[in-house]
Design a protein around this nucleic acid. Structure first.
Lengths: 154, 154
DNA sequence: TCCAAAATCACTCAAAAGGATGACGACATC
DNA sequence: GATGTCGTCATCCTTTTGAGTGATTTTGGA
């Protein structure tokens, strides 16, 4: 990607140089500024379009091979899931926080969690905030994603 | 698409006009041609890039050629994930909605999603609302959970 | 060319979530 | 007894989400 910027700069520089050079040679031509402006505009617009195409082309190819139907050999029993206590320890996440995190991952609202655990909504929010902080998450969706990545959640 | 060309022409015309106008007002300024050239170049390059992105964005979604590939997998291999298109169809979830849902699952906020997809936050919210409705979810965490259950998300 | 689905955007209002901070009691440990 | 952690709860304030509506634009297909 960095190469694009380089090429971009280069082309720009050359163009300006050419502009300046020709400016001196054909000063007599009327409306030269407008003509050059249009030329530059067209050139750069085309270049931009090309660049845009080039950047996004990669994504296309990726999109094409999506569906992979796998023919499974024996069915591996879905592991009963063991929370990664080591990671939990290292992050300093308390059991209660993890418990609430799990309910967040199940899609419950703070109020629903509070009801289910017989605590106040404020308490849930506090636990959430602390857990989010320890996970480096700003949103509950992000916290859930991180939690799964780290093996804290099923 | 016709509108783009129109806007393109319009902007170009205005720019040239502005160029000409200011040219007459600030003839004293040295190197004005170069400066204006650079300005025009930058503007049009940006516009071109934007246009290029916009054009290819569509092709991306359209170009969703589904390639079904059957593979024998040893049971332990983590499946590369195949979105359950049948279920998606039956629920009436559009490709765009699923795309946004995936970003929600990754923990992005609506604003971040909007930036990443070059659309307004309002649009993201609309897609979200529709997807949530189709999934029978009231919150994004719940939608993500449902989406995973239904095999729509990895 | 016309139509329907999909995608886009805007606006309002209400609810949910999040950040910051302080506080209190239970409990374990030093 | 002092200290520290954990769980609990609160208040204030801001941001984010979600619901409900309506509208326009694109696009693909009949």
């Amino acid at each position: 990607m960095k190469r694009h910027v380089l090429i971009f700069g280069l082309v720009g520089g050359l163009l300006i140089a050419a502009l300046q050079y020709t400016e001196y040679r054909f000063v007599v031509i009327q409306h030269s500024v407008e003509i050059y402006g249009v030329l530059v505009a067209i050139l750069f617009a085309a270049f931009g379009i090309w660049l845009g195409l080039r950047i996004t082309r990669r994504r296309e190819t990726v999109r094409e091979t999506i569906v992979v139907r796998e023919v499974l050999v024996p069915a591996a029993a879905p592991a009963p899931f063991a929370p990664n206590t080591a990671r939990q320890q290292s992050l300093g996440i308390t059991p209660r926080e993890l418990e609430i995190l799990a309910l967040v991952a199940r899609g419950l609202s703070n109020r629903e969690i509070a009801t289910q655990l017989f605590v106040s909504e404020n308490t849930v929010k506090t636990h959430c905030a602390r857990a989010f902080d320890k996970l480096g998450a700003a949103r509950r969706t992000q916290a859930v994603q991180r939690g799964k990545e780290l093996g804290l959640l099923p």
